[in-house]
Design a protein around this nucleic acid. Structure first.
Lengths: 201, 201, 201, 201
DNA sequence: CATGAATGAGACTTCATTCAT
DNA sequence: AATGAATGAAGTCTCATTCAT
C-alpha cells in the first residue's frame, strides 16, 4: 500500500515541521516528533534515514509550497525579465527566512548544505521548467533574443545559487553571527540585470 | 592579582560571547567556550558558577555597552521627554535583539528571567541615574513640574520592565513561537506618553 | 511482554538494592548498579527516571516486605490496641534502620522526603486496610467503641507519620548528626495510647 | 616554629574530625574541611599527604583518646585477667563505633586498612606498654605464672587484631552489608580466656 | 607557608541510533 | 510495519589533586 505509506510519511513530516519550527533543529528530539505524529520514535527510522534526512525532507516540502506560491505571485508582472528577477530574489529571501525559522546556526547550515543538494534535484527540475517557460515567453514577446530556454534557465539558477552559496561561505570564514543578506540581494539583482540585458534585443 | 584574574575572566566572557552568538545558548558547549578561551572546560567553573551564570554575565556585559551607546544616542534630542521615550523604547528593541541573537526560545527565556533579575541590579542603578538626570534637566528647562527625579525614574523603569515582562509571559501562555514586539512597543510608547504628560507643566 | 519487562526491572531493583545497602546512596554509581544488573548504565534510564527514583523504588519495595512481615508478627498479640501500638512503633524502628542501612545523611533524607511521599501512596493503602481491620476486630471484641474503622486508621497513620516527620525536621534544624529516636518512640507510644484510650469502652 | 605548625595541624584535624563525623568520609570535601579550619583547601596538602591521610590521622587521634579513657576505665577491675579482657573487647567495640560514626562502608574500610597499619605503630606501642604493665601486675599478684610481659602483650594484641581483621575480610567476601560483631566479640572473649588461662598459675 | 589557579577523572543525564521481535 | 529495549557518545558539573607564585 504505497498510498497508506505516503499518508503516514506525510503525517510525520507535518509533525516534524511543527516541532522544528517551534524548537529548532537542535532542540527538537525524535521523541518530540514521534509524540506529535503518534508514532514511536523508533518508527521514524522506517520512513527516514535519520534526523537530518527528516529535517531536509521537511524543508524541501516547505520550499516546494513556497516556490509554487512565489511563481504565482510573479506571474502578473508585465515583463518576463521582471518576473525572473522577482522570482530569483524572492527565492533568496525565502532561504533567509527558513534558516531563521528553524533557528539554524551557520554552523549547522554548513553541515546540511551537501545533503540539501541531494534532495534539491527534484525541486530544481521544477524551477528550471518554470524559468524556461518565462524565458520562452520573453522570446515570444520579443523581449529577449532567440535563445535556448533550458540552458539559459540553468545558467540563471546556477548563478543565483552560486551567489547564495558564496555568501554563506564568506559568513563562516568571517566568524559572522549571521549572514548579512542586504549585499547579497543587491549583488544578485545586479548580476541578474546584466545577464538579462545580455539576453535582450 | 585581581587584575590578572579579571583579565582571564574577560577572556572567557569574550570567548563565551562569540560562541553563544554563533551557536546559541543550547548548542554552545563548555567545551566550545573552553577551547575558544584556551582553558580546560573545568576551569570555567572557577570563574563562573555554571553555564547559565556565564551566559547571564555575557548578556549583562553586552547590555551595559549597548545601553551606554543608547544613552549617547538620545542625548542630542531636543526635549527631555523625547530622550526618555527614545531611551526606553530603544531598550525594548535591544531586549528583542538579544533573544534573537542568542537564539533563545521563550522556554529558555522563562528559565533565565529570575537569574537575570539578580544580576540586573548594577545596570539598573546606572539606568536610574541616567533617567533621573534627564528628568532633572526637564525640570530645569521648565518642561516638567517640580518632581523627585529618583522616584520618577524608578517609576518609569518599573513600568517599562513590567510591560516587557508581561509580554513575555503572555507569549508563553499563548504557546507562541516568538514574542510579537510591535504591540508591546506601542503599549510602552503610549504608557510613557501618559506618564510624561502627567509630569508636564 | 510486560512480564519480561518486569523481570528486568526487578533484576535492576535487586542489583540496586545490593549496591545501595553496601555503598550507600551517594557512593553507589549507576555504573555499579548497571554492572551488577548486567546492563549499560544508560539502560537504567529506560526503567527509572533517575538515580533518586531508582533508590526510592528500592526502599519502597523493601518497605512492603518489611511491613508485611511486621503485620504477621503483631497478629498473635492479644488485644487489638496492643497490635496497633506494636505495629506503629515497629514501623518507626524500621524507618530508622533503613536510613542507617543506606547510610543516608539527614541532608539527603530531607531531599528525598517529598519524593517518597509520591510513591508512598500504594503502601499506605495497604497499611490503612490492615489498621482498619485491626480496629474493626477491636470493636467486635468490645475493646473499642463503635467507630468508623477507615477514618480512625487514617488518623492513626497520620499521627504516626507526623511524629516521625517532626523528629526529622527537628534534627535538621538542630544540626544533629543523626536523629535520636528514643524520645520519638516514647512520644509515639504515648500519643497512641491516648488515642486508643479515646476509642476504648 | 614547630609549635605553631602543630597548632595549625591540630586545628585542621579538629575541623576534619567534625566534618568526617557529620558527613562521612566520602561526602566530606576538602572544601568543607578547609572552610571549617579557615584554610584554603590547597593548604591542607601542606600538612597532610592527601584526604585519606588526613582521615587516618583523625581516626588515630580519636583512637588514642578513646583507648586512654578505656585504660582508665578498666583499671578499677580486680584481677589483671579481667582488665585485659575488658580492654581488648572494649577496643573491638570501639572499632565498630568508628566505622559507624564515619559512615564507612566495608569497601572503604578495606581500602583504608593498609594505611591504618602504617600509622597504627605509635598507638600500638602505647597499648603494648599498657598490656605489659597489666601482665606484670598479674605476675606480681601471683595471678599469672612468671612470663615475659612484652612478648605476651604482643601476642594478645596480635590475636585481638587478627580476629578483628578476619571478621572484616569475611564480611567482604560474604557480600554482607555490615560486619556482624556479636560472634566476633564472642570469639575474641573465648580466645582471650584460653590464652589467659594458659598464663595462669 | 599559603593560596589562586588549573585540570583530569568520573558522576549523572540525554539523545540519536540500532536491533530483535 | 512497528516498537520495546538497549547503548555509545557527548554534555553539565563536582572534586581531589597539583603547581607556580
Amino acid at each position: 500500500m504505497s498510498v497508506k505509506r505516503d499518508d503516514k510519511r506525510d503525517q510525520i513530516l507535518k509533525a516534524a515541521s511543527q516541532c522544528f519550527s517551534r524548537f529548532g533543529f537542535e532542540k527538537t528530539t525524535l521523541q518530540d516528533i514521534g509524540a506529535a505524529a503518534r508514532f514511536n520514535k523508533a518508527s521514524l527510522y522506517y520512513y527516514f534515514k535519520n534526523k537530518e534526512d527528516l529535517f531536509i525532507q521537511v524543508v524541501m516540502l516547505e520550499a516546494e509550497h513556497y516556490l509554487n506560491a512565489l511563481q504565482e505571485q510573479v506571474k502578473p508582472l508585465d515583463r518576463a525579465a521582471d518576473k525572473i528577477v522577482a522570482y530569483l530574489t524572492g527565492r533568496l529571501a525565502y532561504y533567509r527566512q527558513v534558516l531563521n525559522l528553524h533557528q539554524l546556526s551557520i554552523e549547522s547550515l554548513q553541515r546540511f548544505e551537501p545533503m540539501f543538494d541531494d534532495v534539491y534535484q527534484a525541486v530544481r527540475e521544477q524551477e528550471l521548467a518554470f524559468l524556461s517557460q518565462l524565458l520562452r515567453e520573453g522570446v515570444e514577446d520579443r523581449e529577449f533574443l532567440k535563445l535556448n530556454g533550458e540552458r539559459a534557465a540553468d545558467a540563471l539558477l546556477t548563478v543565483a545559487d552560486g551567489i547564495k552559496h558564496e555568501a554563506v561561505q564568506r559568513s563562516r570564514t568571517a566568524f559572522a553571527q549571521e549572514v548579512d543578506y542586504a549585499p547579497v540581494q543587491e549583488k544578485l539583482q545586479y548580476t541578474l540585470t546584466l545577464l538579462l540585458n545580455g539576453l535582450r534585443k
